[in-house]
Simulated scan of single mutants.
Amino acid sequence: MSIGSTIRNQLVDSPTSLAERFRLRRWENLSATYPDLAEMHVIDLGGTVSAWQRAPIRPRRVTVLTFEPEGEQVDGIEARYADACALPAELRDLRADLVYSNAVLEHVGGAERRQRFAETVHSLADRHWIQTPYRYFPIEPHWLFPGFQFLPVAARVAIGRRWKLVHTPTQDAASMTSSVLSVELVGVTELRHLFPQSEVRRERFVALTKSIIAVKT
């Protein structure tokens, strides 16, 4: 394993990483916010079956809507192929107790699709928990590079091709450009615009906002 991979593993990828500690704290906060979570049907927009299998809490039923379904229903968790910004006709009557999404909003592809994502959230349940990394945290969370999100695309591509902490290293300019363009972090103002009836919570690291969550109970 390279030095870059070792550092990244310690920061975000391993079961004992800093990011994993944040994830565990987020599960605790989710459970505290919705004490009846174990009795709920939860729709997860953009998540994975395996993530719910590893989760320390388990709703009664989980439906994962994703571009990458992982097979048949397992332990009350099922995956359905769907674009969360444009639900297929067969899923438009789907309803649940809670819509959950973790670190997906920044990947859906521009302001218009984020608006459509929010409309999907509102259509599927009265309650929601929508988490996304905060645009103005100084370390961009996908590349682990300071201020990466504020640089021109060409600079981000050049850094991404050389930076040792990137998740999926590649020297291919086209692949890295696609990767760079697939992430667009948002701030509190946009999150409040998308979810005007929600409380916006902040996850902090050393007094700085690391992630923001739109919560409706």
Rank of each mutant, 00 (worst) to 15 (best):
A84K: 03
D172V: 04
D172F: 01
L151N: 03
S182Y: 02
A86Y: 00
S17C: 01
F67N: 08
V215T: 14
T217P: 08
D93E: 13
P133H: 03
Q53A: 12
H107S: 10
E20S: 11
P141S: 10
F67Q: 08
H142P: 06
E140A: 11
T217N: 14
A19S: 13
R23C: 05
A38T: 13
A96D: 11
F195M: 04
A84P: 01
Y81M: 12
A158P: 01
R202C: 07
V206S: 07
R156W: 05
R60C: 08
A19F: 07
A55K: 05
H122R: 15
S50Q: 14
E70G: 15
I159C: 01
R116S: 06
R8F: 06
E190I: 09
P196V: 09
L30G: 02
R58I: 01
T16M: 06
I3P: 00
N29P: 00
C85L: 00
G71K: 10
Q171N: 12
S178C: 09
D97V: 13
M176T: 06
S17G: 05
T33W: 03
S101R: 09
V99D: 04
E106Q: 13
L18H: 07
V42K: 13
D97P: 09
Y136R: 12
T168K: 15
G160C: 02
V99Q: 07
L185G: 01
